[in-house]
Design a protein around this nucleic acid. Sequence first.
RNA 1: GCCGAGGUGGCAGAACGGCUAAUGCGGCAGACUGCAGAUCUGCUUUCCGGGGGUUCAACUCCCUCCCUCGGCUCCA
Length: 503
Amino acid sequence: MREVRIHNTLGGHLVPLRPLSPPRVSMFVCGITPYKPSHIGHARAAIVYDVVAKFLRRVGYHVFYLQNVTDIDDKILRTATEEGRDWHTVSEENFESYLRAMQLLHVDSVNFYARCTDYIAEIIEQVRTLIEKGHAYASGGDVYYDVDTFPAFGALSGQRLEMLEAGVRVEVNPNKRSPEDFALWKGEKLGPRWSSPWGEGRPGWHIEDTAIAVNILGPRYDIHGGGMELKFPHHEAEIAQAEAATGKSPLASIWMHHNMLNMRGEKMSKSLGNVVSLDATLRRVSPEVLRYFLLSAHYRSPLDYAGEESLEEARRSLQTLQVVYARLRAQAGESLGGTFPREVQLTAGSRVYVRDLSEWIELVPRIYPADPEHQRGDRVEEDMMTALANDFSVREATASLFSFASEVHALLESRGPSLREEELASLVRPFVLATEVLGYFPREGTSGSNAPLAAAVELVIEARARAKEHKDFAEADRIRKALSEAGIEIEDTGRGTRWRIRS
RNA sequence: GCCGAGGUGGCAGAACGGCUAAUGCGGCAGACUGCAGAUCUGCUUUCCGGGGGUUCAACUCCCUCCCUCGGCUCCA
């Protein structure tokens, strides 16, 4: 299997992925706290790990991708109070809306979203274990993790306990033995609460991640992902909790941290009032354009959102690829004499039913003998896979695709109709990869059948062609403008008029 | 102050110890077109935060400084 190298925060180097039990790869990513509607920074995180999971599957790994949902926490309670609503309604509504956005964005690689409140029993059990093993203590209705019992605390983020103590702010919670100790369980008398051996209360901030991960993935798993701002203290706490509770180390073999989405140089955050709503953005641009933008910087680099112009640039860039892919598909459809799904002659006696382009391109090499002349796309696909295998270098993979776009245009121009089926199949491959792993193009079928629309547009284009024949260019331009206003762009070419839906 | 990430052409953003530093967007010119668009060709491009050092050779390795962003724990 292809070697995949990933930057591991633990150690700070690129390391080869060596799953604990190949071909399985277990992956945990810190999900959202649904206390407010999501912004596009949340989408960056989701898309980064969506690409990770999809790429690893593409390589051949069986990825189990788990994400938690912190559906009870201080911020949710505060929102509930402010808005005069039930905390549960707040978190569920925001989470549902997040999921709808994820669906639009083709973020469909997560196997399971685990809600904190569905794992209260497991959380209590883990806290109890930590107390039994001497890593935690109950105090004043709360339970705290005793950081001094875990020498490796700070190893992930390079923080040293002594330095932390020097920087600790004045107010120290009197229930804590040491200022760095963090709450595993918080006593609660009035708000939402569950009963526990230490009285009624609710989980601390970090514990649900380890209770969920250890219960579902086991004491050790392959990849842990999350935002850089969570490295300390959240991920340190996770390591301290899980490794102390299970006695197994390391909790995760590879720790991935993605960088922040900035708003004109500043972190996107509520207090600065510079949050860009995910829903609102998805009403302005296509999901593919947003994905393209959010993937336009490497995941470990900060990405700056400069407003409308950032999305506009992404839209224009992606359009270049969309145009060539649309041409290629049209040519393939024409050459193959139909669209998918369709029957394909496999051998003299056997036919198979092919649902879409991606099935077709897998099939074609089995029908035709391999000929390097007809495999231009295979080479580009390989380049893209190589780039992605190097710490998910999406931008580099995209650069290959752009270079390839020119090549495809030239080929279609010079010998479009004479391209052989196996050549076309190869040319399509890089675009299918970009669809399935990067999500640059909608999958076939996801946007519904366009057959009725296509028929209508063809009719209008015919009317315009007649106007052009009579040199009635005013009418021809009027039709073109009207279609454009309806979101359909048409282009006259030597071989008739093409049309596409503007993204 | 401490820890971490980043500073590349008009803009966005890659790579690699060594051919003219990718790719995209934008701009200009030409080809094509009734026009437009798409596409193609050329130009915009001698851009690697500053300063040291290692090396035959550094954007790439080391030191140092500057700037930007994030974190420094339940708390306003």
